[in-house]
Amino acid sequence: MSIDSMFTHKMWDDDELSKMVDGGVPFPMLSDAGGKVGTVYGVYDEDNGVEARGRFIIDPDGIVQGYEVLTPPVGRNVNETFRQLQAFQLVRETKGGEATPSGWRPGKATLKPGIDLVGKVWKEWKVEQAFD
């Protein structure tokens, strides 16, 4: 979603994005002329009339589970977005029975929050796991 019109979105997809992705962008490219939606989400920069690089993860109940907002010159890490999405999906599937500590990615150990874990995280999770 950006302040560009849907016509500009079409030109961008036709002329450039389709050269990067076969068949063009598969998901909806939304228009937020005037930044009304961006204002509600806190990403619209009124002085410059553009939106920041905001990314919101919204769960199936319509709840915002996480967001990241960057100023325009720095791009996002798509892999990190997918990692967070997979983590939120795992937490939801286990109904909160499992949590994903720092450095978690699919296949790595989760934590099981509960009274037995209090003061024992050091046994279940090592600092190196945040970086490997």
Binding site: S2, R55, I57, I58, P72, T81, L85
Partner: peptide, 9 residues
């Protein structure tokens, strides 16, 4: 699940 992304232009 929805990923809502804003970008400058």
């Amino acid at each position: 699940w929805v990923l809502l992304c804003f970008y400058p232009g």
